[in-house]
Nucleic acid binder design. Structure first.
Lengths: 135, 135
DNA sequence: TATTGTTATACTCTATAACTATA
DNA sequence: TATAGTTATAGAGTATAACAATA
């Protein structure tokens, strides 16, 4: 998730946080989803999604609906209010959505990812292994 | 602060977090600094820096030293261990540092910032003001 | 047995407010 | 009065582990 201070402040004014907005974004594009599906899409634990959806329900962006065939599962669904806000976000300014959700897709990022293992190997060689055990 | 999951995981293996690494980065380039200076540089509260420095002291990356002239202030100083780790990070792979600390400096980012106010005005017009009071 | 989601617990990062020590 | 830093308190986001309900 790519985020900066301006973005966080902007979302705050709308009653959202970056992570909660990612959930809404997923729902807008994929439709009603189980929490498990959302967790996998966000590379985050099921527990984390429980908390995010709790917040979105409390602020009226989504509801939890019964899954038609799997009684273990829940379908997180956008409310009209949530749909409206996300619709505007997506339509009015594609750049906003792109920057918020797509992470770095530039050349620079590709270079970074490609080179990361090398850097880490270098760094690890200079860090005392016993120190690293502290966390 | 620009961060993604890969980066967080990478720093974690070194015994660091993104925010703590930002503190070390500042110290590497500016030398021993008061917590107030660090807070301003990071656009973060003094309280936040207290917590970050607490963590860095506990893991041996920095020490708190007396300020030579101002007895209210503290000079946060890199330990040899901290200097070594940050030196490698800076020298071996400039991209790492760039991506970690410079935020987006691309054209795309400039466009985003320029257009942000417009997007927000659009979005706000579609959000019920009473709902926003919830947070 | 495996999966979905919850509760329990804990850590990091962040903020504001009240306070102490010092300037 | 103003500044540097801490303690107190709070909220968001994240994780693992144990568990219940269901598949």
């Amino acid at each position: 998730m790519l985020v900066n201070a301006d973005m966080t402040a902007s979302l705050g004014r709308l009653g959202l946080t970056a992570s909660r907005t990612t959930v809404l974004w997923h729902l807008l594009h994929r439709g009603p989803s189980t929490q498990k599906t959302i967790a996998d899409a966000m590379s985050v634990s099921a527990r984390t999604v429980t908390g995010l959806v709790d917040g979105l329900v409390a602020t009226g962006f989504v509801t939890r609906e019964a899954h038609p065939t799997d009684r273990r599962a829940i379908l997180v669904t956008l409310t009209p209010h949530g749909t409206e806000v996300m619709g505007v976000m997506a339509e009015q300014h594609p750049q906003f959505a792109h920057l918020l959700f797509d992470d770095l897709s530039s050349e620079t990022y590709a270079q970074f990812v490609a080179g990361l293992d090398h850097v880490l190997a270098q760094l690890r060689a200079h860090v005392d292994p016993t120190d690293r055990e502290h966390r």
